[in-house]
């Protein structure tokens, strides 16, 4: 190999590597990113059981039920539709009725959303952004003016 050929092969190897990395990245984006839905969106989008999604909305009033041990059931609503969610674990500190929440997990075969993580807003002035946007789009929620 001449020096030029050597250099070319090194550059080609580098490009092949980058190409592989890029391919992997976009494959992973397609496979591993979870989409965000609000309850009403689920009527139109078909989400097969077992597919990971994020489900956001408000915790519906009067639906929080503590079951055996650390399992909690509640409904997430966007004031149009609501979805039953179960979660085993410690709820975030700011998990309350009528407050914004984002749950991540998948639907079980019985149509109940099994969440493995629940995020609530971090302080009084903050609503999870996806939830706020979604509710605003549906005209349910207005930005407080304080």
């Amino acid at each position: 190999m001449t020096r030029r050929q050597k250099r070319m092969s090194v550059i080609l190897a580098g490009l092949a590597f980058l190409g592989a990395a890029a391919g992997l990245t976009f494959y992973a984006l397609g496979q591993k990113a979870s989409y965000f839905y609000m309850p009403a969106d689920l009527a139109t989008a078909s989400v097969p059981p077992g597919q990971r999604i994020r489900l956001g909305g408000l915790v519906e009033k009067g639906t929080i039920m503590r079951g055996q041990g650390a399992t909690v059931a509640f409904s997430v609503t966007d004031k149009q539709k609501s979805v039953k969610v179960t979660y085993t674990g410690i709820l975030p500190d700011l998990f309350r009725e009528e407050q914004g929440v984002i749950t991540e997990g998948a639907f079980g075969p019985d149509g109940v959303f099994v969440a493995d993580s629940v995020l609530a807003k971090h302080d009084e002035r903050y609503m999870p952004k996806e939830v706020a946007d979604g509710l605003k789009a549906k005209g349910v929620w207005q930005e407080s003016t304080n």
Partner: peptide
């Protein structure tokens, strides 16, 4: 960088909301 900015770019362009978390980064 892609994993961090892609959700924002997607939202800005199509309005679709996704979250890219640990599964993506574990794989890439």
């Amino acid at each position: 960088l892609v994993g961090t900015l892609y959700p924002m770019a997607l939202e800005a362009l199509t309005g679709g909301k996704i979250s890219v978390g640990a599964p993506f980064f574990d794989l890439t």
